[in-house]
């Protein structure tokens, strides 16, 4: 009831409702953030931007929700179909809690898919879009269909605990490969992910970095979509991977590829049990 009511309300009203619900249920993203801030008063990462914490109730990412909802239910594409028959893992059209249970194995494709991979799959298979259509080719920026849909769909899982399934052997395999990738040193400068995310309270220039072993820092770290204040755009998990890999001087990673999926499987597993902030606001 709480959740349904919130979804029906305009955003401005929804953010005013104090969240007292259990952690496995929908919670306003700002309430989730406040809870994490209180739980870890000494976390430099969580507390690094007073400005962003202050801005959180007016997170610009929230303004993508209406467009995302319209794009989800609108009959679109060559097949003139909505995305209501898209199965994100919890049944056709079921969005509540779906985002935090990805990546997962999908019977219909026979592979483990991360959220963006699955969304693109549905837009192609159900709505008939092709890779050349801007609806699926444009992955980044608040003005893209993908980011509007991502923000709307992810928001339905705000406050739910990260809980990517590992029951299927392929899910476990991808998660474990993601762990290897996280620590795999390579590229022109020998970096791995742990170079920046293996210790607490470290900085790259002005950025305080989240520590992967601190699950309450890590849930914020992997809580994308998030509005990035410095870029004035809402960004995805895949965009974060692309940026990290670029900074690490590895090769140029392509979208919809299983290296992304494996890394996200590991990321989301490392945040397991912590509530997701969807959408978040980052520096």
């Amino acid at each position: 009831m709480f959740k349904k009511a919130l979804l029906a309300l305009p955003v401005a009203m929804a953010v005013g409702v104090a969240g007292t619900a259990a952690q496995a249920e929908w919670q306003d993203p700002n309430d989730v953030l406040q809870m994490l801030l209180e739980a870890q008063p000494d976390s430099k990462y969580l507390h690094q931007s007073e400005m962003n914490i202050m801005m959180m109730p007016d997170n610009p990412a929230l303004w993508l929700l209406d467009d995302g909802e319209r794009l989800f239910y609108e009959e679109r594409g060559p097949n003139n179909a909505s995305l209501e028959s898209c199965d994100f893992g919890k049944g056709e059209g079921v969005l509540d809690g779906a985002y935090v249970e990805l990546p997962r194995y999908f019977e219909d494709t026979g592979k483990v898919m991360d959220f963006e991979m699955r969304l693109v799959h549905c837009m192609k298979e159900i709505q008939g879009f092709t890779s050349d259509d801007s609806a699926v080719s444009q992955r980044h920026g608040s003005g893209s269909d993908i980011m509007r849909l991502t923000t709307y769909i992810a928001h339905q899982s705000s406050g739910y605990e990260w809980n990517p399934p590992l029951d299927h052997p392929k899910e476990k395999a991808m998660r474990d490969a993601g762990e290897v990738l996280f620590f795999r040193r390579g590229g022109a400068m020998d970096f791995n992910c742990a170079a920046c995310h293996g210790a607490s309270g470290k900085q790259i220039r002005a950025s305080v970095l989240p520590e992967m072993r601190n699950s309450q820092e890590w849930t914020k770290a992997v809580s994308w979509p998030a509005h990035r204040a410095g870029q004035d755009n809402v960004r995805s998990q895949n965009h974060r991977i692309r940026g990290c890999v670029w900074q690490m001087r590895h090769a140029g990673i392509l979208p919809d590829t299983p290296v992304n999926t494996a890394l996200i499987s590991y990321w989301n597993d490392a945040a397991r049990g912590e509530p997701a902030i969807l959408p978040d606001l980052k520096r």
């Binding site: 026979g110 592979k111 762990e179 392509l254 299983p258």
Partner: peptide, 27 residues
Amino acid sequence: NKADDVDITAMSAEELAEHLIFETNSW
């Protein structure tokens, strides 16, 4: 990572990581 492709569960985590990097057109 397709069903009709290789069996990713038959590999060690290290082998799968190398497979994902080198054999899946990810770059």
